[in-house]
Simulated scan of single mutants.
Amino acid sequence: MTDHILITGCSGGGKTTLINALAKRGHLIVPEPGLRIVQDERASGGSALPWIDMAAFLWRALEMAKADLARMADQSPTVFYDRGLLDAAVGLKTLCDVPFCETLGPVFPYATRVILAPPWRNNFEQTDDRQHSFKEAKREYDSIRGAVQDLKCDIVTLPFLDIAARVAFVERTFGLKRPLGINPTNRRKP
Rank of each mutant, 00 (worst) to 15 (best):
F174K: 05
D87S: 12
T112Q: 14
D129W: 08
D40C: 05
T157N: 05
P99T: 13
D142N: 11
G46M: 11
I155Q: 10
L28R: 15
E102S: 12
F174R: 06
D128C: 08
R130F: 04
D97V: 13
P109W: 07
D82T: 07
N186S: 15
E171W: 01
D68K: 02
N123P: 04
E41I: 06
D3Y: 11
S143Y: 05
P33G: 02
L85C: 07
R187M: 09
T2M: 15
Q149F: 06
R83D: 01
Y81R: 07
T16D: 05
L151G: 04
Y110K: 06
L104H: 01
D40S: 09
M1F: 12
L151W: 08
R130L: 05
I155F: 09
K24N: 12
I37M: 00
R139K: 13
L58C: 11
T2S: 15
N183D: 12
D87A: 10
A168I: 11
P50E: 11
S133C: 14
A117H: 04
I182F: 08
L151Q: 07
R113D: 02
T8D: 03
T157F: 03
F169D: 04
D142S: 10
L85P: 01
T8C: 09
D142E: 12
A165I: 11
A65E: 00
E140M: 08
T2N: 15
A61K: 00
M72P: 04
G12A: 03
T157G: 02
E102N: 13
H132I: 15
G105Y: 10
F134Q: 04
F160G: 03
E32N: 08
F169Y: 15
Q39S: 13
D154G: 15
L116E: 00
F57A: 01
R166C: 05
A48N: 07
L62W: 01
W59P: 02
K152A: 10
K93N: 14
F100G: 05
P184W: 02
R71Q: 10
